[in-house]
Amino acid sequence: MQLNAGCELSFDAQEPTPLVLMLRPRSGAGQWIIREEYQITPAVNVTEFTDMYGNLCQRLVAPEGPFSIHFSATVQTADESDVAPGAPYTPVEELPDSVLHYTLPSRYCQSDQLGDLATQITDGVEPGYDQAEAIRQWIHKNVTYQYGTSDASTSAVDTADKRIGVCRDFTHLGISLCRALNIPARMVVGYLYQLDPMDLHAWFEAYVDGRWFTFDATQEQPRGNRITVAYGRDAADVAFTTQFGPMTLNDMKVWVDADEPTADVNEKKSESIPTFSTSIGSST
């Protein structure tokens, strides 16, 4: 499906404040960026770099006073997420070097403290994909989704104890439980079509059978039509905005709508816009 997605952020800076933004998706597994627009008001100098996870990051200094960011994109997305029941566990000694660090505990994902829970959830389940899916289903059934029940300091251990949170918390718990079983897992942030309520979203990917698979514990069933913006070990790596000074977020708007191409665009679609006969998934 072709989607129009984006966000608007309105700030007030108490003084000139350095910012690192992570708002631009890039073409890759399951998505193709057709068009994008980036507006910053007032205009400032912006530089861009690629971080260690392959995410596009923008650096700037917001001037004192009101400051706003508008980003929008049209993206061709995969309609389904890959599922692979029975896909085998990838032994640690066979993991690519670039995947190894996703087996380790991180700031919000204390996998070293959740081994007993992970073992309990996956008792009798075949190692690999089925374990990650059992974890996803357990979180979906046993953790309540509710706004205002967690904050920026809430960790996977907190969520396992309180059994309540939002997509960020569901994701940290899923990552931690997978890593506790030596299954590499990473955080993904971006957009999901028909998410209710609409917001920027988070889910996790687990590495089994030599590739990454998508798992979203907030949803009843696997869903496609996702736009990935960034990957990381946990929320510390994938913040949409990181500020280095006093700055207040006054308002945020997020949208994801189905794009309806004109007849002329539709006729040229097969020539100019990639479509995805396969679904979301990646070996990188």
Rank of each mutant, 00 (worst) to 15 (best):
Q31C: 11
T74S: 13
G281Y: 02
N250D: 13
S272R: 11
A235L: 11
V20L: 04
A206F: 00
I175S: 03
P105T: 11
Y108W: 12
Q76D: 10
D161F: 08
V166A: 09
A62S: 05
W32N: 15
V20E: 13
D251S: 10
D151V: 07
G165A: 10
L173R: 01
V229K: 08
V157K: 10
A5S: 03
Q113D: 06
R24D: 03
D51I: 09
T241L: 13
A84S: 04
T248M: 04
D97I: 14
T248D: 09
A62W: 06
M198W: 09
S106C: 13
D116R: 13
P246Q: 09
D209R: 03
D234C: 11
T77P: 08
T41V: 11
P88I: 00
A202D: 14
D216S: 07
C7S: 14
K141F: 02
E220T: 05
D97N: 10
V44D: 06
S153M: 13
E8M: 10
S272A: 06
A134Y: 01
G174F: 00
Q243I: 07
A230T: 14
Y53L: 13
E8Y: 12
G148S: 04
F67T: 04
Y193W: 08
K269T: 14
M247T: 06
L60C: 04
L173A: 09
E48G: 14
M52K: 12
G210W: 00
T17A: 10
P184M: 12
G86M: 00
W203E: 06
L21P: 08
D257P: 07
D257R: 14
Y108R: 02
A236C: 11
L56F: 11
V254M: 11
S282Q: 07
T77I: 03
A87H: 05
Q146F: 05
P246W: 07
A230F: 08
R179W: 03
Q58W: 05
Q221G: 02
L195Q: 09
S272I: 14
T214K: 00
L192Q: 15
L95N: 01
I135G: 01
Q194I: 09
A43Q: 15
R163G: 12
E133I: 04
R211A: 01
P246Y: 07
F244W: 08
Q131T: 00
P85H: 02
A62L: 01
E205M: 02
I34W: 09
V20Q: 12
R107N: 08
A202R: 10
Y145P: 02
E93V: 00
A180V: 05
A29D: 00
